[in-house]
């Protein structure tokens, strides 16, 4: 059932021209950024070589690239999550799901996994581009893997948040603005807080991504993402139930 809902979500996404447009545009931007980083690396390579312990190509090209993708996703994810429930409600298609033999968990997980799959496809270009560097040099696979894992967890948490906000309203645009506002707010609060131990750092997904970005696998960061995602998925299920209760 979950797979069926996820596939339907994907089919609807890929039947819209705007999806293909974003897909193409994003590949272009990422490729541009990648080439710019590689060029910069080649320019400073002679100077780097004089250092005692020079940073490699993975640190100077891959890590900043993943960081940019993380920021880009923060803006992109709300544009996709807005449709998930708000649009179904506006088009009255939610009734089809509510009157079908599905639990709230099925509906929410189906949508979550559907969109997560899509976004994974959307950013697969990044590791593929980075692995082309392996043709000419040695890559730090550990750093790349930790970045990919971090990005996956980060995306999941963004989607869960966007899904919940989408479940609160009937207007997709409001859902998009709401999700973007919350994500931007968390990010700004994180970079704005000066104190090292400020609680703002603890609740910002992007801050928890930094360790993954540096190649540091910290179980508390992973736990944060899992908790963040679970909480918002549960809230969405509850919200769908309240939909039946309060109309």
């Amino acid at each position: 059932m979950i797979r069926l809902l996820a596939l339907r979500e994907l089919r609807s996404l890929f039947s819209m021209p705007s999806t293909w447009f974003i897909l193409a545009l994003l590949q272009f931007i990422l490729a541009w950024f990648f080439l710019a980083r590689v060029e910069a690396f080649l320019e400073i390579q002679p100077q780097l070589a004089q250092l005692a312990n020079p940073p490699g190509v993975t640190t100077t090209v891959a890590a900043p690239m993943f960081n940019t993708v993380a920021l880009l996703l923060m803006m992109l994810v709300p544009m996709f999550t807005m449709r998930l429930i708000a649009e179904e409600r506006r088009n009255q298609t939610l009734t089809l799901l509510l009157s079908a033999p599905l639990s709230g968990l099925h509906i929410v997980l189906g949508k979550f996994i559907g969109l997560l799959t899509f976004l994974v496809v959307l950013v697969t270009g990044v590791p593929l581009m980075l692995y082309t560097l392996a043709l000419g040099t040695q890559l730090d696979h550990g750093l790349l893997l930790s970045n990919m894992l971090g990005l996956l967890l980060l995306t999941a948490s963004y989607i869960a948040l966007g899904l919940y906000i989408s479940a609160l309203t009937t207007q997709p645009i409001i859902a998009a603005i709401g999700a973007l506002a919350v994500l931007l707010g968390l990010w700004l609060a994180d970079i704005g807080a000066v104190a090292e131990n400020s609680p703002w750092h603890a609740i910002s997904p992007l801050n928890h991504f930094q360790n993954f970005n540096n190649g540091l696998l910290d179980s508390s960061d992973a736990a944060f993402f899992v908790l963040f995602t679970t909480v918002f998925l549960l809230l969405t299920i509850q919200r769908l139930h309240n939909n039946r209760r309060y109309g």
């Binding site: 089919r11 009255q92 079908a100 033999p101």
Partner: peptide, 30 residues
Amino acid sequence: KAHLGYLPETPPLYRELSVNDYLTFAARLR
């Protein structure tokens, strides 16, 4: 709900799907 078929006031149609795809989805959903 597996024994129910419901047509609400506004038909719950995914406008971007083809009729065959949509009906197949509806059947599998039930």
